[in-house]
Design a protein around this nucleic acid. Sequence first.
DNA 1: CGTTAGCAATCAAAAGGTGTGACTGCTAAC
DNA 2: GTTAGCAGTCACACCTTTTGATTGCTAACG
Lengths: 347, 347
Amino acid sequence: MSIEKLSERKQKILKAVVDEYITSATPISSGEIKSKHFDEISSATIRNELSALEEMGYLIQPHTSAGRIPSKKAYNLYVERFVEKHPLSKKEVAFIENAFNDRFNEIEDIVKRTAKVISDVTNYTSVIVLKNINKVVLKEIKLIDLDEHTVLVVIITDSGIIRDKVITLHNAVNSQYIKDANAMINKIFAGKTVNDVKSPDKLIESEMREFRELYESIIAILESYADSCEESVFMDGQSKFLEYPEHDRETTKDFLSVVDTKEKLAEIIDDGTDIEFNVKIGKDEKGGIDKCAIVTAKYMLHGKEIGHAGVIGPERMDYSKVMSVLKCVSHTLDEIIDGGNNGKRIE
Amino acid sequence: MSIEKLSERKQKILKAVVDEYITSATPISSGEIKSKHFDEISSATIRNELSALEEMGYLIQPHTSAGRIPSKKAYNLYVERFVEKHPLSKKEVAFIENAFNDRFNEIEDIVKRTAKVISDVTNYTSVIVLKNINKVVLKEIKLIDLDEHTVLVVIITDSGIIRDKVITLHNAVNSQYIKDANAMINKIFAGKTVNDVKSPDKLIESEMREFRELYESIIAILESYADSCEESVFMDGQSKFLEYPEHDRETTKDFLSVVDTKEKLAEIIDDGTDIEFNVKIGKDEKGGIDKCAIVTAKYMLHGKEIGHAGVIGPERMDYSKVMSVLKCVSHTLDEIIDGGNNGKRIE
DNA sequence: CGTTAGCAATCAAAAGGTGTGACTGCTAAC
DNA sequence: GTTAGCAGTCACACCTTTTGATTGCTAACG
């Protein structure tokens, strides 16, 4: 799999095969390439080159009398070398911008729209995974006594995301008790990550014995918070998966079982590597879906990673377009959020 | 489609056809019925009866030399008349009880488990829709000033479900301002439904002009709250859909496009009718999925409807089992929640 | 030596033909 | 009303043939 030296012409021919296959999904013949890309050389010459490319593992012949289709190796090379800037049409850019050009309420709403717009413009299934919140740092925990048996717990993190829950205590408590508990809890939790807090140590437990019931409830809330955040996965355009004929029953089943467990999906979309774009072609030990390509992009906000957006489609997906769309959506989001219009109408 | 008088024997034969078809998914012949259900009468007689049932629209013959398959009409009759109590095996009941016999944190967690257990035991795709919260009555809105530009808004409803959000104000405010605003807001909102509040009238707007920014933010939160609650849909076992051979490409696409838009799905699962079980067979003007049956059950808690749970499978689904499972899960949930162990380990 | 034309070889996919078996519908007798 | 018996039907499986696209090879060409 080292970088073999491919002659200029071989590269051009290989690119031609992939380009053609992306749109036609049928094996590409030497004649087709000649007529559409290389009218100056004969089909026989192209045949020789194709034969060599097959030898090198870039092309596959389904059967002797068929044209060639690209191998995974070819797609990987294609993504690495041949994906050029795909200028989106004015219509497409307008469509993307328009999608956000409307009142929106909160993060969830924005994310849903983002998923929808990506799926609509690319015509593939889109997935968005919000960053695992376990790494978020707790800023403050507020306890507010509603009455003597119920307390409202509000969790505030450094990213401003909060969660709350009303808990019911078996023993009656008063305001002072709550204040004391609050001080103690903040002393322990403030500045820690949700993950740190999830597995409390014995020492803390003994310190908190006075507020045992309250303390345990808070731990439970944090756990549930961490759990629920782990799975903030949004999808759109699932039904588009079946618009591609190579997605047969088996592949669709595979796709659905990945989609079914959000954790698996999140792992695939956000695989921990720190690069802008990631392309996974086919299925390997580390997951993926057979006969499918998954293109993911890291989404940033104010220099911080906020999540990953991805697209699931056939191996022969329109990589340039997908990448351009992911980039354009990212840009648009940036501008809108930076506009500070959070929660207001954009005008 | 009126209730035609079917002789006892016709009914028995029709039931036999449906029962057989549910397990075999192949057209049922007269001989099969004779050997498995009616050894006392001849296949010729059964043929005559089958012929009559076909005439009446209960059965369909894919072609002259094939057996018969049930029509939608047959399924509807079957569900109405022949679905008997299907005693779940001890293993199944234990499995269901076990699923909840563990620490769980909050409503979302319970719902996810419920979806999973229903899908696992029935082997169909499960869907749970939590009741549209728009009908929930607002009990109180609490404003808590965090600092002079940020206020925490907490919404408390009669079902104890709350939501909160930190809002940022452009103009600095003090505690007294917040207190006044809080009083005013409660005067207006308390006792109303979220839906009522979503479209405020002019009069209120003029009353609130002093607190305009705050007021508008709260309306926005309520709207977003209503929106997000409308879509509390949970699914499990999507990939099981393809385990049924009659679910071809077209049907799967249909299924996925319903699943794709949670609103559509929610509408199908919770169609507003006030009956315990609802069975939708095939697709009609009011939605549904072609070649599929959707069985839904109303889930109650303390006499109040909390949502609907449903199962999506082939038309020939095991209706008795599905209904029994839905009932059993409902029971188990009831017991666990009534145990008051909300947020604690069950022992 | 790379390139090319020409041509036989290959093979999937489509089209056509045949047999088989599982049913039914009908008829006539019970 | 029920039944046995039998002819009729038709999907399905299997095979063969045809078609057409495409290749690989070879020999000639510049």
